[in-house]
Amino acid sequence: MTPELLIDLILSISLLLLAMVTLRQRTPGDAVIQLMIFGLLLALSWLRVQAPDLSLTEAAIGPGVTGALLLASLRRIGFHRPFPPPASLPFRAAASLGCGIVGVVLSWILLQSWDRPQGLTELAYQHLPESGSKNPITAVILNYRGYDTLLEIGVLLVAALSVYTLAAPVRGKAVKPPGAIFRLYLRMMTPLFLLVVPYMVWIGGYAPGGAFQAGALLSGLGVLTLLGPRPWPIQLRRKLLRASLALGFILFLVVAVWTWRYGDFLTYPPAEASKWILVIESSCALSIGICLTVMFAGCAGWLSEEREGFR
């Protein structure tokens, strides 16, 4: 029993237990908190499976953005309203049995095929110098599998726009303005955020980091601002805000079409690849941040069609 195996066993069993506990909670508020704790442990697990980029992203998005979205929506749903009882006993038994069987089959397949050789690792690392980035994951998401990222930004944009359509016609109840301590915190953290976000985008070129992590951090700043005294930096009708929502996707699309001259859709020439990647990453980070912030406002019920915008 090596120390690594011990840590991995403890971590994975804790994850499993946390998942069980999360699903046994009686009220939505408790379930959300347990899910956030699960996300934190999961972020730790990503490190143990050699995925530091995912660890950063999960730490920012799992407990961070998803937790914020869930908690914001509980304003309208109710923290302490208990869950209704689930389906009838025969159905529950059948579902448990079915999932158990599928789980056993999958585990057996996993253990049988564990020692199969790696897939495309050598190929990915071989072409790393001409991909425009020293970080293999950035190369994967913005070069080798650029389509996926393009469409994913599109999905995020569609989701944010759909949340806009769910805006209430009139403003809801006013929210109490924050106290002095939160204002002080906001004042101290905003410049720090504005420093770390571009740093995260930049460092994605050669170390764990990149557009998604930076976008998640930016959405954290957005959420803090919305909770603060003057959410006016994020007004509904400001054209700049709306433009920045779509900027990532549109710029990505423009770059994809532009590079059509050099060959296929969305193939960068190796000499200019890092420049294009940086341009795309920066705009995507901005878009991701604004989209997630808009979704947070939508979940909290703070989007309204009246002129004053948020709250």
Partner: peptide
């Protein structure tokens, strides 16, 4: 430092 700051602020808000 950031964790200290965040923990203090969120602790205060929660306690209130």
């Amino acid at each position: 430092g950031v964790t200290l700051l965040s923990s203090a602020t969120s602790g205060f808000l929660l306690a209130r």
